[in-house]
Write a protein that binds this DNA or RNA. Sequence first.
DNA 1: AGCCAGGACAAGT
DNA 2: ACTTGTCATGGC
Length: 270
Amino acid sequence: MILIKSNWFDLKNTFDSGQCFRYKKINENEYIVITHGKVLKLEQVEDGVKFYCTKKEYENIWEDYFNMNLDYEDINKKIVTDKIVKEAIEFSKGTRILKQEKFECLISFIISQNNRIPQIKKVIENISKKYGNEIEEGIYSFPTVKQLKKATKEDLRKCKTGFRDKYIIDAVEKISTGEVDLEKIDKLPTKDAKKELMKIKGIGTKVADCVLLFAYNRYEVFPEDVWVKRIMKEYYNVKRKDIQRYKEKIWGAYAGIAQQYLFYYIRSIS
DNA sequence: AGCCAGGACAAGT
DNA sequence: ACTTGTCATGGC
């Protein structure tokens, strides 16, 4: 076990802010998160978070996964432009944007379209059970591209993907042939990276932005889902077509982080 | 029973 | 480029 001290690291807010789907609260102040083929146990304490793993594993995997090098005090200062974000930041205290595995994140957000968060979690769980490896008893890793290549439309439907089955098939197909290269995308400018992701059926602007933010950590993107559109319209009086221009002007390089706080906040007060 | 969810897409201006 | 209409599943 190692203790990581931080004044901006809240497990509940980080996980419940809707960026990640494979975590579970197991006790008061205790969570597990399943990713990178591992089950990590975490505990919230006063001055930080306890990681139940070796120091080496923390440095190899989790330090990057939680982006522990990011200075949120500095970022928050830069994006507090008004009373609404200020309240959102206070509500979202300790929320960190994760750096998720690319393939898992991409499939997860394909599933997210026209879907609800609890349902998204269930579908991802079903897919992992069916195609992933059993890491611990009853806990399965998210499948690799190769593993998910075995999936048929019928089986995916049984996992409750609904009409998104064909999108998952197309994603797996394009990624396994190399037509879409998730690693190369990392090196592209954000605009081009987005274009590449959108080659996959079922990935439009919103899903692409989520993947760019949560797996590629392009903090400047600003995913617009129904909730974000709502808060922009009702609290900022900014119309849909003006959102992208507005967010760039106001929040610039960290618009995605502002978006995450706002998303989490508006849902809580609605 | 009808509404809606971290939308995508085509078709129309 | 921007807007509107259509599609679509499952859960409550």
